[in-house]
Structures are given as C-alpha cells and as structure tokens.
Design a protein around this nucleic acid. Structure first.
Lengths: 311, 311
DNA sequence: TACAGTTACGGACCGCGTAAGCATA
DNA sequence: TATGCTTACGCGGTCCGTAACTGTA
C-alpha cells in the first residue's frame, strides 16, 4: 500500500468512479491509475469497487471503509506538507474561500485587498455558494476558510467564530413617503410592497416577525442579492430592506436610508475553518484581517470546542 | 513522501532516535533507513531531527509536528490493513491484552481459554502491569484491549466499559475466632492485623473506611497479589481480605470465607479498547467472552462517547 | 578504536507511459 | 462504433543491500 495508491483511490471516488477522469485530474495516464487500483485491491484481497461490465459502478461495503481511512491518511500527509510549506515559504501557497453572496460582495473585498498586498504569493480563490454548498465544499476539503451568513447548523462541518454582525436598513427613493420617517414601525412598512434582502434570515422567519405584530406583509421580492433589492427600491417597486453593509454611501446617494435594526433580528456572518489539521500561517492572518476578533487564540479555541458556542 | 518513509520515521522515534535500532526492528538495513530519512528531510526542506556529532539527539519543533501527523497517517493505513485482514481471514491475527494482576489471574483465564478454542489462529499476548503502565501501552498502541481495575481516570486514553464487579471476602483459617461470625463488622476486623488485597481500592481509601468508623486498623500487608494475602491468612499472620473472584473453592478449602461486601466499596474492573480505529471482529468476540454485557453495540457506544459514563 | 550516521555503487524491482486488447452500451 | 477498463511491453527511476567513508566519545 502506498500513499500514491490511496491518492488514486480517492481521486476515483471524487470523479464518480470514472478512472479516466481521475487520471486526468491526477496528471497521470488512465492505465497507471487502473493498474494501481488493481494492485491495491490484490494486496488487500478484496474489491474496493464493484465492476459491472464496462467501468466501475459503486464502492463495496469494505471499499467504503477503506476509502474513509484513505482520506484520513492523505489528510495527515497533507498536514505534513503544510508544515513544510509554512516553514519554507510562509508567503506562498493557496487560500480557497467559500462565501455566501452578501459576504463575498461586501465583507470579503477589503480583507482580500489587504491580504493580497501582504501575501502576493498566495493564490486566492473565492467560491460563492449557499451555506449548504459551502458546508459541502468544506466537507470535501475544497475550501480552506468559509465566510458565510446562515444557520450555524448548516456549517457544522466547520469550526466557526462570528466575524460580522449586520443589522437592517430600509432603502427608498428620497421622494418616498417613508423617507421622512425616522424609525418606521412594522405597521408602516407593512403598508408597502417589500423587497427583502434575505441571507440567513429565512422567508418564514420574516413572516413570523410580521405575523407576531398581526401584519400580513406583501413581499414583492426576496433575493440574496442586495443590488437587486436596491434596484427595485429605486424603481419604486417596493420598499427595500437590506443588510447595513450592503448600503454604499457613495453609489446609493439617490436612496434614503432608514435604520430598522429594532424590527428584525441581527444577522451574524461566521468565519468557518476546518476543525482538524494544520492551518497555514497566512490563513490565520487572513482571518485576522476579516475581523480583529479572529485572533489565533480565538480560532484555536473554536477549533477545539466540540460544537461552537451559542455566541 | 511515502508511507515507508513515515514508517521509518516513527520507528526511529520509538527507538529513541537510534537509526540502527530502528532498522533492526524494521527488518531493514541501517543505511536504508538513514537514506529515507534524509530524502524525506530534503523533500520537506527542514530537519526533523537535530544531529549532534554522532547520532540524532532529539526532534526539532517542526519534526514533532511531522511525527504526530505521520503516526496518524500510519494508523489509518493500519486500519485499512485490518479491514482487509478481517475480510480475508477473520480467524487469524494478533490480540494484545493489557491487564492488571488480579484481572490477569482470575478474570482473564476463562475468557482466554474459550477464545483460544474459537480462534486458534490468533496470537494472544497478555501484558501485565499497573493501570498507569496499561494506559501507557494503550497510548503507544502496544495493546489492543485492556482489562484493568483502577481509577477510570488512569485509563482515559481508552474507551472503557465495566466488565466485572467484585466485592470483598474475609479469609481466615477455619480455627480462627472470626470464622464463626456470619457478617463481621469493621470493629471486629479492626481487632486483628489485616492483610489486604489492593487493586483499585487505594490504601488511603481503605484507611478512610475504617477512619469513618473511628477505627485505626493494623494493616500488616497490602498486596496486589491475592495469593500472598491468602498465604498470610493461612499462616495466621493477619486476617485476609480479598476480592471475591480471588477465592478458589477447591484450592482454598482450608480457609473459611466470610462475605464483607457491606463494609468496603464494590470494585469495578474495566474493559478498555481504543477510541479510534478499526477493531478486528475477533476483538469484539473476545470482549464478549469477557462479559456478556460487552456487546458490539455497547462497545461502539462507549467508543463514541467523549468520556465514559459514571456507570 | 568503537560506534553511529552518511555516502558510493551495482543490481533488482517497481511504476510509468505507449500501445494493443477486451467488454459492454 | 464509442467508451472505458485491463493487459503487454519496454524504459527510467527508485530503493535496497553491501561496502567504504566520516566523525565523534
């Protein structure tokens, strides 16, 4: 059994049991991968995959166990490489970020800008997706850190620490009747069609807030994209309700902004990172740039906790 | 980086940084091990061990991390091998048991006898030691299961499940005055020199029991070995107090036996097994032979609990 | 001088890629 | 016939063991 064989093995699984595709990913030829798989299977004395005529079809029961352990072994090998990389050139490597839309648009950019100046040798990639997709990317080891709003449960493959809290703002054209209201009530909002910027706050939770006040809101749009919400507000199609960070004092000066923090629950964006394994030094540095509270100490403490705290 | 290199690496550490000794253990030549270490260090770009003139002296800081991950990677590779071994010949392998003295003497033998009949192809080894030594053997992966009395804290490298509870018996020559007492009191015992069979019950706990009754016992002997206690009792050097399992109805018919369960706390012997990794099928079978309560289900549940329950 | 680790050298083996074979849809 | 895994073959590299070398106690 060699690490190479285990690498091939997991690549096959991650290519949906297609050896040809796995070989391409691995920069190897298809026969090489096939042969190593056969050799490993012969050494272990059983089939890891079941074959049905042309191609592999699925894992055997024993194969599933083998692959699970193989992944872990490779993970540890990766960790050794990371220790080495950090020692040899702490300013070079890659940083893969999974992020939800609002966070990618409004929270990440300043941190990324500063990070790129500090670490020009680190190849940065941002993968945008839903919290579910981000959790899945984390599970598969395709991202190093996550920055996501959303239920904490969705991110339970990661250790998390709060990195930003946002409150809510109403945006309306300056000419809109609400524009002169200092602090609108739910009832006042409920009088207009609403365009709501949703990220972790779900549509049902939103209806709950209004429902408790006995109001049936007309929600004309929900979107994860704040720019769309603002566009609806500009066109007076609805009263826009967005996260505070989504308001741009320069670009949005045609819109009036009203603080409605008191009406809707504050929303937490989380920084997420793997529970196990080695983090490169620059990963700690990046998280620190995201929020001053993300010190190495806080990160390690979140990583060692079984479940992240209620905060 | 190859698994072989990691194997060599950990062998060096386990041979106290002596490459020659490591090579012997590995059935390899000394240059082979040395060369692979050098190659790995060159690939990683830093020294794993510091050299001082002749020989290696200690690990570097980075080296310690590397070795930690290497151990884990090898452990996973081992797990794959175990899956394979179980599938290919579930009746062949090795079973290394760590056990405290009383348990090795009185609890293990019947289980071992039945196990040997069922699995003649499994090479059995029992390592006797103190609970501390057993915990250390478990940490180093030198035993597969443990059977030990002793504080649960001492065994916290293992998942544990109770496998036997023993109560206390007084043994005295038939002619001894106590021999006619049905249930002796602490005061009655305190009137004689005592020879006490200690295993998990500590000497200070023992004094505590008497102390609460305002009695200052004369303890003439404490020993982990019940046979020694019985010998003292035979010679009338002291009243013997032993765990119930240590009394042999046949061999000890010259001794009178009295139940003193009510006087001293019941003592639990634990079965211990690794929290992580694959257990061979026959290991589950062995544990089941030890105590019917040690079902596969109970074992897995103990393994998955963070800390074993108070019982 | 004894002991431990490193370097030198030659042979065996292993793993790769190219190319051909084989089995399904 | 196209696709995808397996087998055949030859080459290059790697790893090993033997043997010689180097550097401390």
């Amino acid at each position: 059994m060699t690490l190479q064989q285990l690498r091939f093995l997991t690549a096959i699984v991650e290519s949906d049991f297609n050896i040809t595709a796995a070989a391409a990913k691995l920069n190897a030829t298809q026969p090489a991968v096939s042969r190593q798989l056969l050799l490993l299977e012969r050494e272990l004395g059983f089939q890891i995959f079941s074959r049905n005529g042309r191609g592999l079809s699925r894992m055997t029961d024993a194969g599933e166990k083998v692959i699970e352990h193989a992944r872990r072994a490779l993970h540890e090998a990766q960790n050794i490489k990371k220790v080495s990389a950090d020692l040899n050139d702490p300013r070079r490597g890659s940083l893969r970020i999974g992020s939800t839309q609002t966070e990618a648009r409004y929270i990440l950019p300043p941190a990324i800008r500063r990070f790129r100046d500090l670490f020009p040798g680190v190849r940065l990639t941002v993968h945008q997706g839903t919290p579910e997709q981000i959790a899945e990317m984390a599970r598969a080891g395709r991202i190093d850190v996550a920055v996501a709003a959303g239920s904490r449960d969705l991110l339970d493959t990661l250790a998390i620490h709060p990195c930003h809290r946002s409150t809510w703002r109403v945006v309306v054209p300056s000419s809109h009747p609400l524009a002169k209201t200092a602090t609108p009530s739910l009832a006042q909002l409920g009088a207009y069609p609403l365009a709501f910027h949703l990220s972790s706050l779900t549509e049902s939770a939103l209806h709950g807030v209004f429902g408790e006040a006995g109001i049936e809101p007309h929600i004309i749009l929900t979107s994860r994209d704040a720019e769309t919400i603002k566009e609806y507000a500009r066109l007076n199609l609805g009263v826009g309700i967005i996260a505070d960070i989504a308001f741009d004092a320069d670009g949005d000066r045609d819109l009036a902004i009203l603080d409605v923090s008191h009406l809707f629950p504050e929303e937490t964006a989380w920084a997420g990172f793997p529970r196990k394994g080695v983090l490169r030094q620059y990963m700690y540095d990046f998280l620190r740039l995201l929020a001053p509270d993300l010190t190495r100490e806080n990160i390690e403490s979140a990583r060692s906790r079984e479940r992240s705290p209620a905060f």
